[in-house]
Simulated assay, not measured.
Amino acid sequence: MRSLAGIGLAALLVTTAVGCAGNPEAAGTPSSTPPQGSASSGPKSPIAAASHSPVPVGHTLSLTGINAGEKLDVTVVKVVDPAHGTDLSSPPPGKRLVAVQFRLHNTGSTTYNDSPANGAKVVDTQGQGFDSAITDTTSAGPNFPATTTISPGGKALGFIVFEVPAGSKVAMVQFALDSGFSTDVAQWKVH
């Protein structure tokens, strides 16, 4: 009987641990990105401590993901601030849109299949981080699709749009694979 009770306790502990791993708040770690399909509700903390020294916009950084074989060369091509939204993408009063164009090159041995917008943030001069916003399009150019798939050796180019307070000055762009959960975090300085 003791072994059945021990197995039951072990199963309960594993279930609790798995539940906490899937829910960063339950594990005591703040969530770094909103679930896909939810709008950014305001300032957020940066993704994590960057593992790369900040580089200027236009430079490429190599990032690895959580799983074996996940590797991307990521370039912030340009920052459009302000970006003008379409009728469906206009920001609320007191906010503006900032569009960041990323180039992703899959240099790994496995297919990249993720939502780049979930792994990106902009950070203002006061250290406030802002998640991507849900927008249709902006005057800057086409956004990445909700899910982007890049085969090994393949490339993709697209914008990720952020909604920031009108008075905030964007100082940094951050990006990480695996919807922002990878600990390999890149940063680009915005002039």
Rank of each mutant, 00 (worst) to 15 (best):
A17N: 12
A146L: 06
I7A: 13
L61P: 15
S51L: 13
S90P: 04
G108Q: 08
T110N: 02
Q174L: 11
D81T: 10
G8P: 00
D131W: 12
S182T: 15
T125S: 13
Q174H: 13
T15Q: 08
G127Q: 00
G37K: 08
T64R: 15
N67G: 08
G158F: 02
P34R: 10
H59V: 04
H105N: 09
D73A: 11
S40A: 12
L9E: 06
V98F: 01
P30F: 01
A117N: 09
V76R: 03
K121G: 04
F162W: 00
Q128W: 02
G8T: 04
P116Q: 04
V74Y: 03
D87I: 11
E70P: 01
T135R: 15
S139M: 10
I47V: 04
H84I: 10
S179V: 06
L97C: 03
A171V: 07
G129H: 11
V77N: 13
P145E: 13
G127H: 00
D184Y: 09
A120I: 10
A27D: 13
V122L: 13
V170N: 03
G108R: 12
H59I: 01
T149V: 15
G94S: 04
R2C: 07
P165S: 06
A156R: 14
T135C: 07
V18W: 09
S45A: 09
G28V: 07
G8R: 05
G154L: 13
I66W: 07
S40M: 03
C20S: 07
V161N: 10
V164F: 00
V77E: 11
T16C: 07
W188S: 05
L72V: 00
A48Q: 02
A171C: 08
G108H: 07
K71G: 02
D131A: 15
I66Q: 11
P152V: 10
V170Q: 01
V190S: 03
I134F: 01
T33P: 09
G65T: 14
P93G: 04
S53Q: 14
G42V: 09
